[in-house]
Nucleic acid binder design. Structure first.
Length: 900
RNA sequence: GGGCGCGUAGCUCAGUGGGAGAGCGCUCGCUUCACACGCGAGAGGUCGCAGGUUCGAAACCCGCCGCGCCCACCA
């Protein structure tokens, strides 16, 4: 150990790259991350990681959320180490098969090879994706290790694992049998990019400007009077509809007006002739129609518009599908248009209508257009046979859980959002026309078309013995993700893991998947396990690019966390992200990362300093295990122990409150603002190997060594959840036993060490030192020289020597000062002044200017307080403590001003 | 259209009822024997605007201006 410490001599900087992988290996080997499944979830602590996409790589969101979860996990693991009997801490790890995203990546690779999934066939393609997963699926897990994340790597799950797949099939069957899962022909969000239906939540609206066309449809002559027909129109009159999607008119099956629209009352029941097609369209009344939009006459296309679909259902209209799943016009669109793309068809239809003189008006029109969040292509609403899940019964207990606090959402302004969505929940389209995913466990008989729904494939049709074929579609990836907190632990089997770690404690995520994932986990958790899957949901910030835009690959605004780790160290990145995080979105600031880097380096050097100076006097004992006994005698020892107790209390409270920013920054402030800037500077002279050391006796030196190393050890342990690498590295020097800090007990504040007297005295001394240093600077006193002075303030009994040393003053006693030597200048300090007795090398004019400025400042402050105290309202209504405080302050400042 | 949130130092952000703060940047001084990725000292702010509540408002309330996000079926 002595040699190791000696080697520190030359290491003046903390080099993350030298230690990170070595330390991570030690953690892994220790088994600390892989708890035995004992005990019960009440006492144990667990978090299920939001499973990253198996082919993904670490982005800033992962890095922030990883840091947050690791702080919680490391904090709880260390707390657990102090419990008797001990409890266990598990961070459940795994990846998500991410249906569309993964399939798209592999398809892209196939395209580059000049082939396609269709050419390969389903089986070979799925095989190919598994290969891909073998190849690239571990990247992100390795990247989490770089961050220092203490997940249970020995128990990694994948949403397509055999056991997990069984759970998924099992859930499908259960919910089908409850009648909540059903198959239906319904209008869905068709994503031409992935050639699949997607759910409402995977659709994003983009603001676009299109052309709004007004098109005239003639009416069928029905022999009745020509009311409602324009005089200039054809004999039967006409209607004029408005649309931004003229190509869909080919699928119109009605025209609608509002039932209370006086203008068109007589049109209802008549028919219009669909231009280009000739179909007769009934004119119906439906109160969906807005009377004040356009002409108040609406074309109805049930097969290609969700609203029209509803209208169609109400009026039993035909559904004419003119756009196919390939995004091209179908045969139903007519010979002229069949096979054209939607955009081509739009042009062709407009051209044809124009030729017939039917376009009455064209105007630019701004509106929201649906796009696929998955492929980026424009959504094509169309009618399709899909599997749906009715959510109403699932939602009810999930609403209750949040309302009654069984699930707490932090920060709680997200509660309202969750509840609003849940209260208006709609059926979930759970089938996807993909090959990569959980194939729906439904089997159709080839002979009698009987439908079998079963978790394992039946041999033959139970009705007729015919051959069965499985449903082609797979489930929405989020269907399997919804089971994550318990399926990862082995559910539906009653495994020891499930018994020990479910329900989990907290789920941490960004708000973008609150509905997509979190809400569904709550619903499924309650339905299937009878328990909420976690008691807290923590919604963290979204980190934006430094310029405030989204961080995204396509915009080129992304910042790679791994690159940042390589540049600044994992501790720095963790610290920085946590310090940035907040209850709202924040911009990435590399300065915060650098602040973390500085903190790691500072702690490293402070520890190095203490060890190098103190080691000799301890003979290589387990330094940090020393309690600061004999009890500290000096005021600064009492002060730092008191401050340590405070930061210990604060840090634990902040972590438990999910206030990571203040937890991290509070540690920084303690290490810089108290431990290094003041405590170390105050005690330096008491350490061995210094010229002045002779004046200290052995006992005092040992007391200091014990206190110093104790404070450092506790600080390093306290900071471990935030900056695990540097603290673990330092611990290896501080701890003689060779134990891992990660498995050690978390520091717990010792209330008996809180010493408010010492705090008041040291704080006053610090203020005085800062005042003198400022004064020295302004009068041009050289940094090295010691200035003779007289301390004219009563309250520096035990801190006067500290004040003298830190401010480089020499306080002369009355007799030494050859009688009452005249003050050449004076410096205001709390509770009095310091008189300067030598002007050597000082700018006395500047000193006088400074004195005047200080007096003015005091005067202004005195006036302000006087004004306040002369206000009868203040004295009468403000709390007595506040009034007394102001009175005291007035007294003190007046005395200081008089002395100056 | 509904909801949530934000506007504080040049930049990124804390502060949420009684003396305007941090990090970075900037200025000045220090090769002070832990750290020059360092140390010390400074400059810099009518706390978006306008009202109100209060003895007292950066903070609480109302309105306005500006910005962001989420939800929503007006072609």
């Amino acid at each position: 150990m002595a040699e190791r410490i000696a080697k520190l001599e030359s290491r003046t900087r903390f080099e993350p790259s030298e230690v990170e992988s070595r330390i991570f290996e030690r953690w892994l080997d220790s088994g600390l991350f892989h708890p035995k499944p004992d005990g019960d979830p009440e006492h144990n602590y667990s978090i299920a990681i939001p499973p990253p996409n198996v082919t993904g790589s670490l982005h800033m969101g992962h890095a922030l959320n990883g840091s947050i979860q690791d702080v919680l996990i490391r904090y709880q693991r260390m707390k657990a180490a102090g419990r008797r009997p001990p409890s266990r801490t598990k961070w459940i790890l795994g990846t998500d098969h991410a249906g569309i995203a993964t399939q798209a990546q592999v398809e892209k690779a196939l395209l580059a090879e000049g082939t396609s999934r269709h050419e390969l066939g389903r089986e070979a393609f799925v095989e190919r994706v598994w290969d891909w997963r073998e190849h690239y699926g571990h990247t992100i897990v390795e990247q989490f290790k770089r961050l220092g994340a203490s997940c249970d790597y020995a128990d990694e799950r994948f949403t397509l694992d055999e056991g997990y797949a069984r759970a998924v099939a099992d859930v499908f069957v259960r919910l089908y049998e409850k009648g909540w899962i059903y198959r239906d022909r319904y209008i869905v969000n068709w994503d031409p990019g992935s050639r699949s239906a997607i759910s409402d939540l995977e659709v994003e609206e983009r603001h676009e400007t299109d052309t709004l066309y007004s098109i005239r449809y003639d009416l069928v002559e029905d022999g009745a009077a020509d009311q409602g027909a324009s005089p200039s129109g054809p004999p039967g009159g006409s209607v004029t509809i408005a649309t931004v999607r003229p190509e869909t008119m080919l699928g119109d099956t009605a025209v609608a007006v509002h039932p209370e629209d006086e203008r068109y009352r007589d049109l209802v029941g008549r028919h219009a002739i669909l231009p280009l097609v000739g179909r007769h369209l009934p004119i119906i009344a439906d109160d969906y129609v807005k009377m004040d939009f356009g002409t108040g006459q609406l074309k109805v296309t049930p097969a290609h518009d969700p609203n029209d679909f509803e209208i169609g259902a109400r009026h039993d209209l035909d559904q004419v599908s003119v756009i196919g799943e390939d995004g091209c016009m179908t045969a139903e669109a007519g010979e002229r248009f069949a096979g054209l793309s939607v955009m081509q068809a739009r042009e062709a239809v407009v051209a044809a209508l124009r030729e017939e003189g039917r376009i009455v008006a064209e105007e630019p029109y701004e509106h929201e257009v649906p796009y696929s969040h998955r492929s980026g292509e424009r959504i094509e609403p169309l009618i399709s046979l899909q599997w749906f899940m009715d959510m109403t019964e699932l939602a009810k207990p999930a609403i209750r859980a949040v309302n009654d606090g069984a699930v707490r959402i932090v920060p709680d302004n997200h509660r309202r959002v969750y509840l609003d969505w849940m209260e208006n929940i709609r059926p979930w389209c759970i089938s996807r026309q993909l090959w990569w995913g959980h194939r729906i466990p439904v089997y159709y008989c080839e002979t009698c078309s009987h439908v079998h729904v079963a978790a394992t494939e039946p041999d033959a049709c139970s009705e007729c013995g015919g051959r069965l074929c499985q449903e082609e579609d797979v489930l929405d990836t989020w269907f399997s993700s919804a089971l994550w907190p318990f399926a990862t632990l082995g559910w539906p089997e009653q495994t020891p893991e499930l018994a020990a770690f479910y329900p989990t404690d907290v789920l941490s995520t960004a708000r973008d998947i609150l509905f997509l994932w979190v809400a569904r986990m709550i619903m499924m958790g309650i339905e299937l396990t009878g328990k909420v899957p976690f008691s807290d949901v923590y919604i963290h910030s979204v980190i934006q690019a430094p310029d405030g835009r989204r961080m995204s690959k396509s915009l080129g605004t992304g910042i790679d966390p791994i690159q940042e780790i390589e540049r600044h160290g994992a501790d720095a990145v963790r610290f920085g992200l946590l310090a940035m995080s907040s209850t709202q979105d924040v911009r990435y600031s590399v300065e915060k990362i650098q602040q973390g880097q500085a903190l790691a380096n500072k702690l490293f050097n402070a520890t190095r300093f203490a060890l190098l100076r103190v080691h000799a006097s301890l003979g290589g004992e387990a330094a940090a295990e020393l309690e600061p006994e004999p009890m500290p005698r000096t005021i600064e020892d009492r002060w730092i122990l008191s401050r340590l107790a405070q930061i210990e209390t604060d840090t634990a409270a902040r972590i438990e409150d999910y206030d990571f920013s203040h937890a991290a920054l509070g540690l920084y402030d303690f290490v810089y603002g108290e431990l290094c800037d003041w405590y170390l500077e105050l005690v330096k002279h008491r350490l061995p190997d210094l010229g002045e050391a002779g004046e200290q006796d052995e006992e005092s030196r040992e007391a200091l060594a014990a206190t110093l190393l104790y404070v450092l050890g506790q600080t390093v342990a306290l900071a471990h959840p935030v900056i695990p690498f540097v603290t673990e590295e330092l611990w290896s020097y501080l701890d003689g036993a060779g134990d891992l800090l990660a498995g050690r007990q978390y520091p717990c504040a010792d209330a008996s060490r809180v010493d408010l007297d010492a705090e008041v005295e040291i704080e006053r001394a610090i203020e005085a030192i800062v005042a003198v240093r400022g004064w020295r600077d302004s009068v041009g006193a050289r940094a090295g020289i010691t200035i003779p002075a007289r301390l004219c303030a009563p309250c520096y009994g035990s801190t006067a020597p500290l004040l003298a040393r830190m401010a480089r003053l020499q306080f002369l006693e009355e007799d030494e000062a050859e009688g009452a030597q005249l003050a050449l200048a004076s410096v205001a300090i709390p509770g009095g002044v310091i008189e300067i007795l030598s002007a050597e090398g000082l700018d006395l004019a500047a000193a006088e200017r400074r004195r005047t400025a200080a007096a003015e400042k005091l005067q202004v402050e005195i006036e302000r307080i006087r004004g306040k105290l002369e206000n009868p309202g203040f004295v009468a209504k403000a709390p007595a403590a506040v009034v007394d405080g102001e009175r005291e302050r007035l007294q003190r400042l007046t005395a200081e001003l008089a002395a100056l």
